[in-house]
Write a protein that binds this DNA or RNA. Sequence first.
DNA 1: ATCAGAAGC
Length: 707
Amino acid sequence: MPSMDSGNSTQSRHNSNINQLNRPKAEHFARRQNIEQQRKSLPIAAAEKLLLEEVRNNDTLIIVGETGSGKTTQLPQYLNNGGFCRDGGIIGITQPRRVAAVTVAKRVAEECGVALGQKVGYAIRFEDVTSSSTRIKYMTDGLLLREALLDSYLSKYSVIIVDEAHERTVHTDVLLGLLKTVQKTRSKGVSDAADIDHREVKNGMLLEKHNGSEVASTMKHCRGKKLSPLKIIIMSASLDARVFSEYFGGARAVHVLGRQYPVDILYTRQPETDYVDAALITIFQIHIEEGPGDILVFLTGQEEIESVERLVHERLPQLSESKRKLLTFPIFSSLPSEKQMKVFLPAPIGFRKVILATNIAETSVTIPGIKYVIDPGMVKVRTYEASTGIEPLIVVKTSKAQALQRSGRAGREGPGKCYRLYPESEFDKLKDSTTPEIKRCNLSNVILHLKALGIDDIIGFDFIEQPDRISIVKSMELLFLLGALTDESKLSDPVGQKMARLPLDPIYSKALIIASEFNCLEEMLIVVAMLSVESIFYAPREKLEESRNALKSFSSPEGDHLTFLKVYRASDEFLQKSNLVNSKEKAEKNLRKWCKENFINSRSLKHARDIHSQIRRNAEQMGLLVTSCGDDMLPFRRCLAASFFLNAALKQPDGTYRALSSGLTVQIHPSSVLFRMKPENSNRSSMGAKRREHMHIFAPYRWGTCS
DNA sequence: ATCAGAAGC
């Protein structure tokens, strides 16, 4: 008899041949049984019948479900089984984030025992894993908003579930407003209501022009068709359902229990003057005094994370040798993915992990093994200053809801502790919830989108929370300057209508339209794709010199836009050559290696490539001519000046720059290739050069402000 | 002498 070890595979071989034939079936059965058991043990399972009743009786329902309730995966299945997909209706579930849409869809497909993309599917930008048989469709809220441009009644959907509504992203807020009007229209029954018809014809004309058959048929399909009522379900994790309920005319709200372990909240006795130092002390205090379990520290940004990491390593040698088993892992969005992945690896036996994170760890990334959370109570947020149009990032105190969300991260696998680095009296003074994004951002894209949906009265639009009037006015002003709006504030034809169809910042869309007229659209598509993604260059502090040298080989004396163009073309050439002799996978792996050698963030470059292929397709569909200007960059630079006019600055006699639009004194951003150069004043090529001899034509894509 | 993090038919 052969000797056997106890590994799983050997175990299998040990079983008889007869069993081997049946095993896949048996395993499958066991797995299904396990899934069924898990489903039944979820807190929401007990409420299945009740929830179905509530949805039948209420056209709009608010569901408050704490984390771990199972609402996201279960409710769509209940509704499907309860007959809400009859007559081919689809249950749409929106998520603020792509990964959530994908992972939840995969899980639900598995629970239903179907292949992903059949009954259960998902759709996110660049990826549509649905088919004609899809009944449960997970998607991003932004994607559903885009769909509304083609089908303004969202007529495919019998139910739309807006998940994570408490996060109040711009997309969620706009979607809520849209759903409210769509529901009203659809409850009238037929799509020929006078006010709506007018808008539809307008939309129909707009779309038929560029996207002939497909859209025309959608419109015919809608017109005169009997519309079924739309059920809306808002799901939120915040305890306060009142805002949503009031917005939907006193809609009914139900609560579903969650499943969380208790988390002890600890406060400091005194306010801390230096929260970074306080965090550092707390890390060591936990490490020395508390039992096993990893620590999650919330910091505001990359720089802070890197400095805490350095300080931990500086102080570690002061501990006794047995206490030095502490490992730090940074995580923030611009960190290359292979480094991000390291936070998920379990610590070696006897070691404790300290995760130093931005608010990426609040919602986007869930790290296993966390027992202790350190929360200094600060967060970096983007704000919008309507007067100047700039969007500075500032560090502010978190809200109560955010503090709660952070502490919850300690109680996912067992009881935990959260150390708030401020006194309890300070907590009471915090705002209840974070200011919704729509109050803090440039609205030009939102307005363009609403106009394209036929909603012209933006100030009068029923937002769940009204944006400031001034930021609406300022954003409309920008759209007007870009030529997207007419004197009567209507969407212009064809510029505004083309811009609304492109999934880009309106300024970038305009750049494409201008470039198509000056025969350099090929170049502009690349540059706009590169401008649309997060930092293409990655410069770790310890390799700053090396990365600068790498950048030098691409940098163009003509500025950052042309540098981006060179990077993209170099990477494209590399990939194409690699494709000739390798498999697609191998070629992409090689490209990632090439990126690393050149200090380029491969995730960002991949994203830019995806955007490029999408907007190139969009441009072609719209009938824009994709031609290249070859070696003559003059027309291209003119197009830059014509579309990025808000970024133009005039060089002053003292060498500083003055922004033409705002009058602010600005400086070239340190990340610009022009930062250490002394660009000459030029009269060669700017569109305004004849009138303004000193106008700077190399416009870096990013200016810094001077204090 | 430097920007969080989501997201897009």
